[in-house]
């Protein structure tokens, strides 16, 4: 392919991020490409700003959390979500928007679901925002399909030995949202209260929702 990638780069520009004194090699390189693309009229910088703002402020795990909380409180919605998640979520209007190909998979005492993309980083952006680094990195992608219990142990999660673990490798354009089990002690809670308990990782299957009263 076109470029020579053999020169080495330092990716670890975190340390001087924010100080403004020195631009990292990556910042310079990306600015250069952005300049070319804006000068050639392919993209507007304001459009790039708006994309970034959306993922920094509007689209994140709170979207999925509202869907999960709704499923916990509304049996008809839960049923609809498990039958056709795209259709069910699209009835929620402003709560969360989704395109096609969303599938919700339900955790039960008998079965725990866990989602991975071994080939790249497929992830339900509209429900959870942009994926965290660990989800896109080699340790998780390599081991989730071969040793899911070991991965969960790394994360401090222990499941009963007889719980079935189902690993969903997102190899195409279907996107999977785990519907975790509703925590005990939340009887009578509102959807808004319940949504606060739903963590990002509980919707990937690498964590549980928070429990009532536990420090967050």
């Amino acid at each position: 392919m076109a470029q020579d990638h053999d020169h080495s780069h330092d990716d670890h520009d975190h340390h001087d991020h924010g100080h403004g004194s020195e631009l990292s090699e990556m910042q310079i390189r990306v600015r250069a490409l952005e300049s070319v693309l804006t000068e050639k009229g392919y993209v507007e910088s304001a459009a790039l700003d708006a994309i970034i703002e959306a993922y920094e402020t509007k689209i994140g795990p709170h979207n999925g959390a509202r869907v999960v909380a709704k499923a916990w409180t509304d049996p008809a919605f839960r049923q609809a979500l498990l039958e056709d998640a795209t259709k069910a979520v699209s009835t929620l209007g402003h709560v969360a928007r989704t395109g096609d190909h969303l599938v919700a998979v339900e955790n039960t005492p008998q079965r725990h679901n866990m989602v991975v993309c071994t080939l790249c980083s497929c992830y339900p952006w509209e429900m959870l925002g942009l994926p965290p680094v660990w989800y896109k990195a080699a340790p998780y992608r390599s081991r989730a399909v071969k040793d899911p219990r070991g991965v969960l142990a790394d994360l401090g999660i222990a499941l009963p030995n007889d719980t079935e673990i189902r690993v969903w490798d997102s190899t195409a354009e279907m996107r999977f949202l785990v519907l975790p089990m509703r925590p005990k002690g939340t009887e009578g809670w509102s959807e808004e209260q319940l949504a606060e308990l739903v963590t990002r990782d509980s919707m990937i299957g690498t964590g549980f929702p928070k429990t009532p009263g536990a420090p967050s």
Binding site: V30, L48, G60
Partner: peptide, 19 residues
Amino acid sequence: EPVFHAEWEARTMALVRAM
């Protein structure tokens, strides 16, 4: 974890989506 670890990551994501 922050959504992006550096500004260039955010710009890169946006450039890929835009193009």
